[in-house]
């Protein structure tokens, strides 16, 4: 128990003193997770709308597959991206293994199914009457999509928060394709893992607490944004 207490005080110490290394790692973590989440949502929101509004053969199966991918282990994604980006792999020419870009790609792959699946659920949650009324008033297809997305915005935002949280807290991808290089690809989770393997348990706990603190701040900001509208 004393270790947890020391971890807490250490976390406070690191936050209050603006420890440069921890601040740098935190900023990098946010930047990478934020980029992945942004890119994943650029892909997911339109794609989810498309899947939701179109009727096609195998739609249920597709949605089942997407939902299954919610629980894909991060190490599997990491391994897949590693093999893809390694010099001996198909995209080796890019030479981006062990860079933040590789981590962004991995995290995107990791969270896209979550954003897709939850956005589809969110859109399904919008009542049929809204759609029917809008159609009878002469809304175009695109206006309809925007309207439904607007109606479902709380649930979509929840999906984004969850996706961002998964990107922020995952270790497998960051470790495998980032390589935990100090000052370049080290993020909160890989730093935490290294501190643990080195037996620096207080430091590890402190990093964990700071990670949660970051997530808290982001959630508060997003919720504020949501309420203001």
């Amino acid at each position: 128990m004393t270790e947890i207490w020391y971890g807490l005080t250490k976390a406070m110490e690191l936050i209050i003193s603006f420890d440069p290394e921890v601040m740098e790692i935190a900023a990098r973590t946010l930047r990478i997770a934020g980029t992945s989440c942004l890119l994943a949502s650029l892909i997911s929101l339109p794609l989810a709308s498309l899947i939701h509004f179109r009727r096609f053969h195998g739609k249920r199966v597709l949605i089942n597959i997407i939902q299954t991918l919610f629980s894909v282990p991060t190490v599997i994604v990491g391994l897949f991206v590693f093999v893809l980006l390694s010099r001996a792999g198909p995209l080796g020419e890019l030479g981006i293994l062990f860079t933040p870009a590789a981590m962004v790609i991995g995290q995107m792959i990791l969270i896209t199914p979550i954003l897709l699946g939850l956005t589809i659920s969110a859109l399904s949650g919008v009542s049929k009457e809204v759609v029917e009324t809008a159609t009878s008033l002469g809304a175009s297809g695109f206006q309809l999509v925007l309207l439904v997305l607007r109606e479902a915005r709380y649930a979509v935002l929840a999906a984004l928060i969850l996706g961002f949280g998964r990107a922020l807290s995952e270790l497998g991808v960051a470790m495998m394709v980032g390589g935990n290089i100090r000052g370049f690809t080290r993020v909160m989770t890989t730093a935490l893992s290294l501190a643990t393997t080195r037996g620096e348990l207080e430091m590890a706990l402190a990093l964990g607490i700071i990670l949660l603190f970051l997530a808290l701040v982001i959630n508060i900001v997003l919720n504020r944004l949501q309420q203001r509208r």
Binding site: T35, L38, L39, L42, I43, L45, P46, L47, S49, L50, F53, L94, G95, I96, T99, P100, A101, A102, V104, I105, G141, F142, V145
Partner: peptide, 25 residues
């Protein structure tokens, strides 16, 4: 149309990815 919009977004996404890749080198 939804289709053009989707394609436009996909192009933007690819552009961002490529720029990140270039930055990462």
């Amino acid at each position: 149309s939804i289709k053009t919009k989707v394609i436009a977004l996909a192009v933007i996404a690819i552009a961002i990815i490529v720029s990140i890749i270039l930055m990462a080198r």
